[in-house]
Design a protein around this nucleic acid. Sequence first.
DNA 1: CTGTTAGCGCTTTCAT
DNA 2: ATGAAAGCGCTAACAG
Lengths: 352, 352
Amino acid sequence: MRKKKIRIKDIAKLAGVSTGTVDRVLHNRGNVSESARKAVEKVLEQVDYKPNIHISGMSLKKKYHIIITTPTVSKGEYWESIHTGIQRALDEYENINVNCLIHTYNQYDIYSCRETFKEILEIPTDALIIGPTFKKETIYLTSELDKKSIPYIFVDSMVEQTSPLAFFSSNHYTCGYLMCKLVTAIMRNPSDIGILQAVRIGDKSANTTILRKNGFDNYLKEKKLTNRVYRIPFSVLEPEKNDDLLSDFFHKHTDIGGIVVLNSRGNLIANYLAKNNINDIKLVCIDLTTPNIKALKKEYIDFLIGQNPERQGFMAMKTLIEFLIYRNPIQVENYMPLDILTKETIDYYQEF
Amino acid sequence: MRKKKIRIKDIAKLAGVSTGTVDRVLHNRGNVSESARKAVEKVLEQVDYKPNIHISGMSLKKKYHIIITTPTVSKGEYWESIHTGIQRALDEYENINVNCLIHTYNQYDIYSCRETFKEILEIPTDALIIGPTFKKETIYLTSELDKKSIPYIFVDSMVEQTSPLAFFSSNHYTCGYLMCKLVTAIMRNPSDIGILQAVRIGDKSANTTILRKNGFDNYLKEKKLTNRVYRIPFSVLEPEKNDDLLSDFFHKHTDIGGIVVLNSRGNLIANYLAKNNINDIKLVCIDLTTPNIKALKKEYIDFLIGQNPERQGFMAMKTLIEFLIYRNPIQVENYMPLDILTKETIDYYQEF
DNA sequence: CTGTTAGCGCTTTCAT
DNA sequence: ATGAAAGCGCTAACAG
């Protein structure tokens, strides 16, 4: 038999004050005498009080304003899942009155990012959820927020030289390391490896694919593997050129046994292999976008890595809400699970 | 801007009745005139009313009794996770007054199972969560429950010829299929495969490892793979004999390239390989038991499959509670995700 | 059969 | 600065 739940009323009685005073202490609302505060805090140390957030929400009048800024959302892609997760948290905490403003920017256009961040800084808000892309711009944004003591949480990745409440992301280094392990485990050996990594023009700073590439390289090094690695040319901005680029690549390199795609566009390679009836090249990709899932189901992709974007968004919003209401301490580093999906498991997959 | 949440009070006003009557209709409590019921039901069709279970729970006086019966729980093993998941659901729904009785049986002793099920049938209860092992006994138990109209939910596996409210389990066939795919993808080829599958003495009926074996066999067949498969002798009841049995096996079969363990005792093989410095045999196992996780981290196990037992337990209890309170329709078939874990991903793994 | 009312744990408001 | 009381959405108990 576990002991009876303790309520505010119980604390009030134990401390010899009223429930109103306990509430004021719990939420640091002020207007409490030194002596009353001490009495309550003493009781709080002794009992295990856990407020019920759903009941709190029921009587909470305050409206919280939260700004969400991420790269533009496309249907069936990575960032959409992050937003879905955020929405799920809002649904779960339906009793809490939160107003969300969503401000997205073009992740391939640094000016769009600057513009958006500038706008955001004009808007009064209680907190932010940030999906960062450009390092310098993000550091600028957060330094301004720090000045105003506005809390923020990162999703997708952490940015150095910032001090977020928390971040929820996968470990990109480990992810690249894993992808290399998987492709080398299943491809015929010895043979060459193709790697696809889009480099953001005009932004050489560390981003997620660079971290993944580090992991990839280190796996080869650690295991003393001598496969040659060739970078696959590829253009995000002029997609119509990609077919020719790929064609060129495969004519130049005839002993490719496996390919790793370090960004979410794995389906481009999958489509090429499918169209050209290439069956002896193993393919490991990342992110459960609609086209990637389709390619996985047809087994053009052998392993697909999931970063749990929905969970990232969910946890970010949940953490934020709980912080805003109770100001409880928060763990800063939060790495999400890396899911390995295959044709067999994808149908049963569900982030929650 | 999403539209305002609808409350019982709103429904009452729209239907021209009191909140009490709406509540009576919603919960089928009777004592409602035909006309009042119709009026309320008409409104319910038009609006999207979603009760808040946490608030419901707050005023609910009824105490629900739920019996949980599973194989005996050992620390760090599969069934413990199922119980952990059940407990998590109870924590999340802390406002609901549920009383759990746990009755476990020895999964290797059919008499223990019979005894336990007999006891259970004497106890009045609102519902059960059943982790089945012996087919006939389970069918007997559930047929008695059916007579009394007591609802039950399965975890771990479904039993044919029963009519549960729902079941939460992995797809064991797919699981075996996947394990075969993984081991053949990473082992040197051609070579032989060792397979470990404990057969329960005196119980030849379909159980989870048999389903997995079917999946395993079918993968080989579908892919027209000609690896020879040898069954590894192994004793659950006399574990001290296993070392000799394994030693025998590996002396008899010198070209084993991969091993699949269809039950949760993969660590036994892992330990043997470790102790004898065997590094060229790939190992694919199931269940995130403490020893299996340890073996995975040391890379004696190459792939470990997770069946999400915690989620199974959580979903079972959550579903049951919601059913008991709202009698809402429930999806019967619920296959949990099959997680593929490696040394790299295990540290980030968390079922929730 | 039905409406009214009290009360669940919590926050807010309003006197004091 | 503090306690008392009202109210959030829901269910239970009661009076008619």
